[in-house]
């Protein structure tokens, strides 16, 4: 019979070290098309006879995307391929147009909530997973030359940055750093708060 067309437009969407392989659906009237995904790292190309490794969770799936985060676990160029199948009929493999290296992931500035609890400058961060460090910078408004930095790995709890002087406005910004790829995100928005005895005013 006529060979099934291979999937097209295979691309990788990678944000904050979460990597997804996506492709366009293959249309076969009246048939349920299934897809299978395999990956290959630089090791497989250079040392293991160009072998490919199937991704169990993306074998025989009907959706046109696959979470490959767990398999892209080294900072080397990876290749990925997808094929379509209907019953026993399978298309050719379609591969990425170019290798993917996680070093190209796009790092989004972290979401930050700055509060003053009395005289205490507190910061809450979003959770991004063990690969991330947060670099938090804070300074007294108007004294931009004197910036303090704290490096935080565990973002699960509220962080106490400093004890503020009454009436002084403190500003905070943060960025993420990923050691595995040795890259940082851009800075978050600056947020400023001022502490007055028992009350807090958010001034941004």
């Amino acid at each position: 019979g006529v060979l099934l067309p291979a999937p097209r437009n295979i691309t990788i969407l990678s944000t904050n070290m979460k990597h997804f392989l996506v492709w366009s659906p293959v249309m076969v009237p009246g048939a349920a098309v299934k897809y299978s995904v395999e990956f290959q790292g630089e090791y497989e190309r250079d040392y293991a006879n160009d072998s490919w490794i199937p991704i169990g969770e993306c074998t025989g799936i009907s959706v046109t995307q696959c979470d490959i985060t767990e398999d892209i676990s080294a900072t080397v160029p990876y290749d990925l391929r997808v094929r379509a199948g209907v019953g026993t009929q399978a298309s050719h493999w379609a591969t990425l147009s170019s290798f993917f290296n996680r070093v190209t992931t796009s790092l989004i500035p972290p979401m930050l909530t700055v509060t003053a609890d009395g005289y205490h400058l507190l910061v809450e961060l979003e959770r991004l997973g063990p690969a991330f460090e947060f670099w938090i910078y804070y300074w007294k408004k108007g004294q931009g030359h004197k910036v303090y930095r704290k490096v935080v790995k565990d973002s699960s709890t509220t962080l106490h940055m400093d004890t503020m002087e009454a009436g002084t406005e403190y500003c905070v910004k943060a960025q993420t750093y990923v050691e595995a790829i040795n890259r940082s995100s851009n800075f978050s928005q600056v947020q400023c708060v001022r502490a007055e005895a028992g009350k807090a005013i958010l001034v941004t």
Binding site: F39, A48, A74
Partner: peptide
Amino acid sequence: DKVFRHCETGSLYINRKISGIANSFLS
């Protein structure tokens, strides 16, 4: 050169983890 290539197992999950380690070693 010598170890990872002889560690193929019947488990897809283990093979994927070995691949991750091998590629990290290469890096």
